[in-house]
Every structure is written in structure tokens, then in C-alpha cells.
Amino acid sequence: MYEAIQEAFSITRLSWSAAHHEDRGDGILIVLPPVVPTFLLLDPLAHHLNAVLRRHNLMLSEMARLRLRLAGHAGFVYVDEYGVGGRAVNHLFRMLEASDFKEAIELAGTDLGLIVSDEMYRDVAGNGAYINPERYRSLRVKCKETVADAWLWLPSPARCGCG
């Protein structure tokens, strides 16, 4: 998982060493410096990570393939001796754990799914960034006490060129 994400960061020209990252057991929490353009976390990073995953999973069985859920949100976080915290972190994890998000990935059968907070999506889409808004669909997040709008991106189905 770390290798795939670090490779996608490199392709996207994001500095892994400048980011704060915490191992969360079955995932990684990554906090980027505020100077990183938010739009890089949407289409470019997601596309690159999908390509890396597709290559990685090419020769693996269904049971062995790596599947990832990716969430993006922007907001204030604080760091103390125990790690990163704050409302923005809580919101990020609520989106990541939302049952509708998990179900959408499962139904699509993809190796990657991206969910982005409404605020982040609107900031990026409203500022002329190079994303394809038609590739995103609105998703209502309901997890614990969080009820919020978010945006779902799933990769296009792979074209094998067969038949």
C-alpha cells in the first residue's frame, strides 16, 4: 500500500517527505502542507493511483488484489504527541467510513474509490481546475453524527482491447 501511494505521489509531483503521514493500521492518514494545490488531490492523484493499482493487481488473484478507499478534505488540523486531530480529520474519516461510499465501490468493482468533501469539490470545480465534473456524482454521507454532502469519483472501467 505504501509503495503504491508513494509512487502515485511521485507521478503527481507531490512531495511525500513534506507530508505528515500516520499509519492507521489498515490505512494511512496523510496531511499535506497548506501550499499544496487542492486540485492535485482530485483527478491527477486519483488517476495516477488507479494506474499504479491496476498495474500492481494485474497478475494477482481476486483475493490478493489491493483495493483502496481515498478521501479528500481540507481544513484545520492540529498535531500533538499522539498524532493529528480536529474536526477536519473527523469529517474525513466519516466520509471514508460511510456505507454508501463503500457500497458504491463494491458495486462498481473498482480497485479505487475517491470521496471528496462538498467544500473541497466546490472549491476545486469552481476555480477552473482541470477536473472533469461529469466523472463525479453527489453522494450523501451518513456516518455516526455526520450527515453531509460529498462527491464520489470512480475510475473508468479498464479497456482491455479484446474482442
Rank of each mutant, 00 (worst) to 15 (best):
R137L: 12
L41Q: 01
A51N: 06
A19T: 14
F93E: 05
L139A: 09
G163C: 15
C162N: 03
V89S: 02
A129F: 06
F9S: 02
F9N: 00
E103P: 02
L96R: 00
N127Q: 14
T12D: 14
A108T: 02
T110K: 05
P44K: 02
L45F: 15
R24E: 03
E62G: 12
A108V: 10
S15N: 12
E134Y: 10
V36N: 07
V35E: 11
D80G: 09
E119R: 10
F76T: 09
K142P: 00
V35S: 13
R135T: 12
M63G: 09
R140M: 13
V79T: 15
R137W: 14
A108H: 02
L139C: 13
S138H: 15
D118T: 10
M1G: 04
Q6M: 07
G163Q: 15
L41A: 01
R135P: 02
I30D: 00
G25P: 11
H73V: 14
K144G: 09
Y78C: 10
A8S: 11
E97Q: 08
M63W: 10
G126L: 05
L107C: 08
L68P: 00
D43L: 08
L45S: 05
T12C: 14
L114W: 04
D118Y: 02
G113W: 01
S99R: 07
E97G: 14
M120H: 03
H47C: 09
